[in-house]
Write a protein that binds this DNA or RNA. Structure first.
Lengths: 122, 122, 122, 122
DNA sequence: GTGGTCTAGACCACT
DNA sequence: GTGGTCTAGACCACC
């Protein structure tokens, strides 16, 4: 699996990594027990600090997506892919929710929001 | 005009202020040449730092929504209400864009996105 | 509240900090909305890295014991003290469980375990 | 003698091995001069690194429980079974000690500790 | 002032 | 080789 880091983005690097790994799980690119790159190897490949990679792995482990074995490496946990997808859908929902809230706060009607939505979707 | 600050919110306080002033302009509550509360008065009323209020006013002035007269105070600029609305629409568009991007990244089809959208809009 | 760090201990520094803050909450030394020392101030006082303090605060926030406000500081969360105590009791239970397990694994009878227990408790 | 490794456990693999061999000595399954499996054979059987097995054997030899003859193999040392038991009792004592310490740190009385202990023992 | 993120090293324990 | 912890600095955003 290839990782891409946008150093310019406002999104923290460790969150970018987390997102890509979660996406890999949902898409099936990463399957249960698959080994993730070692912290140091990935850090070197992406030319970022090992601590940054570790922070991403730590957070993913805390959320139950991967398991880390001391001295061996990190592996995709046996999570139901559907559960992961459900979790990420909730993230999308939150974005839509804030968009709708902001739209209404600035006086847009539902019809205007729908128009904008269809335009964006293309 | 009454301002409300949510200290718990993830949105920075200065952005909350900016949003509420922009909303006031769009809704007509705040009209051209209306005086805004002084930085110190608003800071005291909301129990926040004067620097935070100043940052909001500065940003609004940079965006052309208000004008600040040294030694007198801040006033709603003679902005076309439509311009304000246009600026805010762009913000909504950005939120929708990131939602769509994240949705596709986690494997949602356009149809699924549309379903979620209609559900949220209700 | 005074913090004590044992640099010799095998327990990581950040865990020592977490334990002491949890203890403070249970004992009532730290109450809801009390401000914790800033990351940098505590790091300087204890002569440890600011990142180490931050790691402790981050973990405590993830467990719901404290809340951190960007640019302001960290505060004791409005957790029911009973809940904290319950969580820590579970930690004690795990230690006892492993002691009993190991004792039985090396052939100790329940009576022998009870004797040792009473001896330790004095 | 059959060995069991729990890869999920928080206890290091080499310690798991050491514990099982000590238990064998106490229970009499392993007696003086009994040959232990070769480092390589045991590593292959358990699908772990030979270095890990070596580390366990080295530690056991340092503690006097086994003797290793270069080029021949490892054998149970002529240790008094009581001595092994005594050593393991000390490990149990350490666990109880840390449990009591943690319990008191979180405000439990001796009576509460006793209650929990009796509950766990059942 | 505060926290949020990141770096480039180091040492240790486990495999 | 691996991960686990820690350091001493840096830059940024927010208050």
């Amino acid at each position: 699996m290839r990782f891409m880091i946008h150093n310019t983005s406002m999104q923290p690097i460790y969150e970018q990594l987390m997102d890509q790994i979660k996406t890999g799980i949902v898409e099936g690119t990463l399957q249960e027990n698959d080994a993730l790159p070692s912290v140091r190897a990935l850090a070197k490949e992406l030319r970022i600090s090992a601590l940054t990679v570790k922070k991403a792995y730590d957070a993913l482990e805390a959320e139950g997506f991967i398991v880390t074995v001391h001295g061996k490496g990190s592996y995709i946990a046996g999570t139901d892919r559907g559960l992961v997808q459900e979790a990420r859908r909730r993230e999308v929902e939150e974005l839509l929710e804030s968009a709708i809230q902001k739209g209404k706060a600035c006086g847009m009607t539902e019809e205007e929001l729908r128009e904008m939505w269809e335009l964006m979707l293309e």
